[in-house]
């Protein structure tokens, strides 16, 4: 199993790397297109601000490479949001794999959403063995609107897509690497795809 975590300078990559290590898989950190293309599975992480993260992707040309990947790709948090068409954060055009837009939570709720919330309406092998309304750890101020590609839903002032899937592309808004044993199960499921 050759697992590559795309390393473009955005986010807490160590935690993801360690989470896979706990599952017995040593992930490779790389921003090299050849290495990424040669992987069996790819993680597209992201923490921080959308506009600067997108700029870093463009500088390394990864924005063009990512949508052409054929193997399973898992976008996490901002990684998932950048795979969408557009995000209100910094008025940023995304990679556009997922056919939906990302909006800011309204101020009827505290922003960022920070902590454990449930995911339900689970529709994907990614959630095999994960029960409906399982708790996941989330930290975000922007959310993806529902579309045909929604594979998990969460409520926070609004009901939104906490996971998306389009062909070989998967995205989760929550942090499976920080979501206890249920999160580890999802990462294992991704490895098993």
């Amino acid at each position: 199993m050759k697992l590559v975590i795309i390393n473009y300078g955005a986010g807490n990559i160590k935690s993801i790397q360690f989470a896979f290590k706990r599952l017995g898989v040593d992930a490779i950190l790389s921003n090299n297109p050849e290495t990424i293309r040669a992987a069996d599975k790819i993680i597209f992480p992201g923490v921080g601000e959308a506009r600067s993260a997108m700029r870093m992707l463009k500088e390394s040309g990864l924005d063009k490479i990512i949508p052409t990947l054929k193997q399973p790709v898992l976008g996490i948090c901002l990684g998932m949001q950048l795979l969408c068409k557009y995000t209100e954060e910094g008025d940023t055009k995304g990679i556009g794999v997922f056919n939906t837009a990302v909006k800011r939570f309204s101020n009827v709720v505290k922003v960022p959403q920070m902590g454990w919330n449930v995911i339900n309406n689970l529709k994907s092998d990614l959630f095999k063995g994960v029960k409906e309304n399982e708790y996941m750890y989330l930290v975000h101020s922007y959310y993806a609107e529902h579309c045909d590609e929604t594979i998990a839903k969460t409520d926070y002032g609004v009901n939104y897509a906490s996971a998306l899937q389009h062909n070989n592309f998967y995205g989760v808004q929550f942090h499976p690497e920080k979501s206890s044993t249920a999160g580890a199960r999802i990462l294992q499921n991704f490895l098993n795809l």
Binding site: K14, S15, F18, A19, K21, R22, Y137, V139, H175, E177, K178, S179, S180, T181, G183, A184
Partner: peptide, 11 residues
């Protein structure tokens, strides 16, 4: 911090 991140699966 490194050892905690390595072994603990909550934030």
């Amino acid at each position: 911090v490194l050892r905690v991140a390595e072994q603990v699966n909550i934030p």
